[in-house]
Amino acid sequence: MSRWPREAAEPDPSSFGSRPYDLVKEFVVALVGVTVLTLLLAAVFSSPDEKSMSVASWAKADPGDFTATALAELDGSSDTAGYGPPYNTAADGQKIGPFALAKTVGVTHAIDTAQAFVLTPLEQATQSPDVRAALGTYMSASDDQRGAWTDAYSTALDKAGDDPAKVTPGGYGPVPVLLSQLLAQAKSGSLDATLSAESGFYHSDYTLPLMFLADGSDLAAAGEQQHLAGDQWGMTNEVDNYPGQVWLIPDSFFYQVSPFDHSPNGDALVWAVMAVLTAVFLLVPFIPGLRRIPRLIPVYRLVWREHYKTHP
């Protein structure tokens, strides 16, 4: 063991003399104690179970935001539509210096937002003749024509404060009919089911409804109200007054400081820093300076104060 001469040279524990120590008794007492303590904490403090948000509850509570989000999915201006890998090629994804890991891995979970969030749910439901006609008109139109309709409607919806009922008539083509029908499907709860079921009868993948919810404003507002956003140390927080993932404080810290808090590559850069810090954490025994800290801050004298009384 010549690689670690000093480390190997520590004396054998058995050379210090010994005392009876009942490990099994200690384990059993600790197990009983910790179990009782946990049962008490659970009884006294319970645990949070904040009801999930559904596409239906979102559409009912904020039909304007739902419609604006659906329009953004249709015209390709939503967060998901412009995300990049692994959902599409609209962007390159984040980079760590020259390394574009997301782009290298590529698109593994393709999402065409117009199709997935708007057109497929409309096509899959039984529709009235006017909705069928509107869908037919939209599907057979050119990309330029579709863009003209959605641009015009987007401007008008914006002017109407996201309230579809207040939009003045204009050259929006079939877009208002489609979005109004999608809103009706969303309010009825059928859109939740359709989005989940796009992958088949059995499903456990909630990517589509979650991405759709996250593109809207209401999920973000609910998270910020609970101090859960990234720039609120949200990674460490739990809803209400419950403790959260306190152990993520180091990760969360970097999201609060420059350049991570504003860089478009912020997430990737935080990962890079945490990877280095994790390596340092694992390799403390080999890092000069760091491994001397325990000798410089002599907490060990408290731990072994009895020993040092007899071994000065």
């Binding site: 140390w233 460490t236 007054n241 403790p243 959260g244 306190v246 404080i249 609060q256 400081v257």
Partner: peptide, 13 residues
């Protein structure tokens, strides 16, 4: 300053 913790998390620390 930049530090912003829930009271519950402060209690855990």
């Amino acid at each position: 300053g930049i530090f912003h913790f829930s009271v519950a998390n402060v209690v855990m620390v």
